[in-house]
Amino acid sequence: MEIIIGTRYKQEWIVTEEMLAKNVKSGDVSVFATPMMIALIESTASACLQQFLEPGIISVGSAVSVSHTAATPLGMKVYAEAEIIAVEGRRIDFRVSAFDEKEKIGEGTHSRVYLNKDKFEQKAQSKLPERA
């Protein structure tokens, strides 16, 4: 499997009520929430990487370092761009940016690790107590 540095991907959302800071408990205002901007960035990076992965292999986020520099109101379009900037073993690093219809609203870096979906989910489920 060859993951190509420089590959880019873009994804667009429209800010809904469920994405507002006051509704995700990240503030008391009616603007696009920082956790939702991070979710958009992660979703975009995941989609960028998925095209290179074999069936049964997924990626999970492992690090996020972003700034959220401008507010976006309900109903406005937002989009994120992700670019693969490094591949080190199973870790893929991205340069990420987020925008609304008027300006850049955030930027930073994001890392993902690819792995076997079934093994990952089994390991997570093994944390639960056994049921009688």
Rank of each mutant, 00 (worst) to 15 (best):
C48Q: 08
K102Q: 11
V64G: 13
E54G: 10
D118M: 06
I105N: 05
G6Q: 02
T7A: 09
E83A: 14
I92L: 13
R91V: 09
A39I: 07
A33F: 03
K25I: 11
P73S: 05
K77D: 09
A63R: 14
A124K: 11
K127Q: 11
P35V: 04
V64W: 10
G56C: 02
A86K: 14
A70V: 07
I105M: 09
I38V: 15
H68M: 13
V87E: 10
I14V: 14
A132R: 13
E107S: 12
G89H: 06
T34I: 02
I58R: 06
L128G: 10
V96E: 07
G56I: 03
S62Y: 04
V113D: 01
I4C: 10
E103F: 00
Y114Q: 04
L20W: 01
R91S: 10
K123F: 08
M37E: 05
A98T: 13
I92R: 04
G61H: 13
Y79W: 15
A86H: 11
F52V: 05
I38T: 06
Q50T: 08
D118I: 05
A33R: 00
V96L: 01
R91N: 11
R91F: 09
A80L: 13
V24H: 01
T7C: 07
E18W: 02
D100V: 01
E121P: 00
V87F: 09
E121M: 15
L49A: 08
D93G: 14
N116Y: 05
G56V: 04
K10F: 13
T44H: 05
S67G: 13
A71P: 14
F32N: 04
D100L: 01
A86T: 08
T16G: 05
T16I: 11
S111L: 05
P35K: 07
E17V: 10
G75F: 14
A47H: 12
A45Q: 03
K77W: 07
M1D: 07
Y79D: 11
V66N: 10
V66I: 14
L115Y: 04
Y114T: 02
A98Q: 02
R91I: 09
G61W: 07
A70S: 12
G6L: 02
E12Q: 06
P129R: 03
G56M: 05
G108K: 03
V78L: 04
H68G: 13
A80D: 13
V96G: 04
S59L: 09
